[in-house]
């Protein structure tokens, strides 16, 4: 399951999440959303550390972040 989920239709493709991701695991998708933007997406789930910097930089509250934690 993806650690980072995007409300893709809300994304305006500003790229701040991508620019500040410390693990470079985000990118703009090749397709367009219905607003006409290339939405941000998680392309390297394996590198993601669920730090949520992407969500904290997102101006449109597009991103939710989860992590697996030991019980």
């Amino acid at each position: 399951m993806a650690k980072v989920s995007f409300l893709e239709e809300r994304c305006k493709g500003c790229g701040l999440c991508i620019a500040f991701c410390p693990k470079n695991c985000l990118a703009l998708a090749g397709h367009l959303n219905t607003q006409g933007y290339h939405p941000a997406t998680l392309v390297d789930e394996g590198s993601c550390i669920s730090c949520a910097i992407c969500a904290r930089m997102c101006p449109d509250v597009v991103i939710e972040v989860e992590k697996e934690a030991r019980r």
């Binding site: 809300r10 101006p59 939710e64 030991r70 019980r71």
Partner: peptide
């Protein structure tokens, strides 16, 4: 055993609707 925990999710104090701000506008963060 592991479980999934939320690290970041939309605060309840924001209504769930799109914003009019331009791409990359810091108003959204504020």
């Amino acid at each position: 055993m592991t479980e999934t925990v939320k690290v970041y999710s939309r605060p309840k104090t924001l209504i769930d609707r799109p914003w009019h701000f331009c791409p990359g506008c810091h108003h959204g963060i504020a």
